[in-house]
Design a protein around this nucleic acid. Structure first.
Lengths: 244, 244
DNA sequence: ATCTTTTAGATGTGATCACAGCGTTTTTTC
DNA sequence: GAAAAAACGCTGTGATCACATCTAAAAGAT
């Protein structure tokens, strides 16, 4: 009866709670790359002891979403341009594979979610003052709605880990971008978003037609466009500035 | 002077030490899937307190090399056949990509390491009593020597995480195989290893010729052969037997 | 004033204790 | 003897304390 309807609701631990919060903070890029993170201060801020924070940060370190510096201090990882390019090429491969599998398992239910998010993106973009943070969030949800159709949960998890690593960069760019949106930057940003929109529509059309090659091509363009924008904006250091 | 010669030798923590040990144990499959792991008992066994073990296990849980059961107990994950197939398809993609990149960056140094390991594998296999554990270990080193030539450290790390997840299965098969090596099993096992050997030689030849497609094909066959053997041996449960 | 030395604070790491939840075993009851 | 109940032991979780190490500020010397 009811046992089959409710989820077991495994009472989550404080560690898991802290982990989710820190993950959100990093994902939405509320911490800059290189910024330090003290166990005690964050524990105080979250009104818990250091133990849950320790476990959460250790887990994030394991996922490379945080790193421990030479003097054991925990910080948001810096990322060089070459590292960013490596992640991008891995993303093209892994997310391309997910898209390929999504073409095989796509159906009306998946498409409904995808098109809802696509129109939400469209709507937000065509407002007079588009909220970049919201656009990034919708874009992420849209991509994962597509990858979910691959019906490969582990693959989804791997891709999530990669997005977690580039999250801080995306927002770092956003902040530094907002400081210099005087001249061409804002125009470039807008044209980039319009490009993204067209990539999305091509991608969805290809999914409907189950056209694997077209879908992968559209995804490739989408990722490349965003990547080139980040690299061109010059927010990434050419070489590693931090001691190992 | 000497400062540039020595590595900083970051004094590793106990947690990292425990993590490495547990990782080795899992990788070499000294624990069966489903087997439980108590914090206190392992802490006693390693002569440390529970703290380092807690952090190490949490990290392994984050990497899906361990899992926490419904009653919070930590255990080696069970793996269904469909999960195993999913990992295999991800491996083919990711390791295929690594091989592709290795073709671009291959040189004499990389080749030297690769061929040393290849001949070690050949030598061990042609002994009268080949040590299966040693063969698996050499096979792993050989694969990663190839992937190292891709010069993509993060990709290497992702692949390592996947191998960590299938490590227990490989050994589980090995043990259950040793129990039933009466009839055809041992013969099948030998023919499989001979196949693996031929895949290796094809793969290395393709690497030398920088023939991307041939290299990927050889790798594909290599992974598929091993996978089919595991699945055919029937050590994997068809559906998940453990409560979520 | 400038450079060196010292000191005080903050950091992550590890150990130990207390506790709630769960599983098993023993005891009790019929 | 079989079923229900209580006791016990073991589990992971969280908090708190002690410690070595490192950083940054204050004191000292020249």
């Amino acid at each position: 009866m009811i046992h089959e309807l409710v989820t077991p609701l495994q009472r989550q631990t404080l560690s898991a709670n802290v982990y989710e919060q820190l993950k959100d903070i990093l994902m939405s890029g509320k911490m800059m790359p290189g910024q330090q993170l003290s166990l005690r201060s964050t524990a105080d801020a979250l009104n818990v002891s250091v133990m849950p924070v320790r476990e959460a940060t250790q887990r994030l370190v394991a996922e490379n979403a945080l790193e421990i510096g030479p003097s054991r201090m925990i910080r948001v990882p810096m990322m060089t341009e070459s590292q960013f390019r490596e992640i991008t090429s891995i993303r093209i491969n892994l997310e391309g594979f997910a898209t390929e599998q999504a073409c095989k398992h796509i159906n009306e239910d998946y498409l409904a979610d995808i098109e809802t998010l696509d129109s939400a993106f469209d709507k937000e973009l065509n407002q007079e003052n588009p909220d970049s943070t919201k656009l990034i969030s919708i874009n992420k949800d849209l991509h994962f709605a597509i990858y979910k159709a691959s019906e490969m949960p582990m693959l989804l998890q791997l891709i999530e880990a990669l997005w977690l690593r580039i999250g801080p960069i995306l927002n770092y760019d956003l902040r530094s971008g907002s400081k210099r949106l005087e001249t061409r930057a804002i125009a470039d940003h807008h044209t980039r978003l319009v490009k993204t929109l067209s990539h999305h529509s091509k991608l969805i059309k290809a999914l409907k037609a189950r056209d694997v090659e077209a879908a992968k091509a559209a995804l490739h363009s989408d990722i490349e466009t965003a990547t080139e924008f980040i690299i061109f904006s010059g927010t990434l250091p050419a070489v590693d500035q931090t001691p190992p």
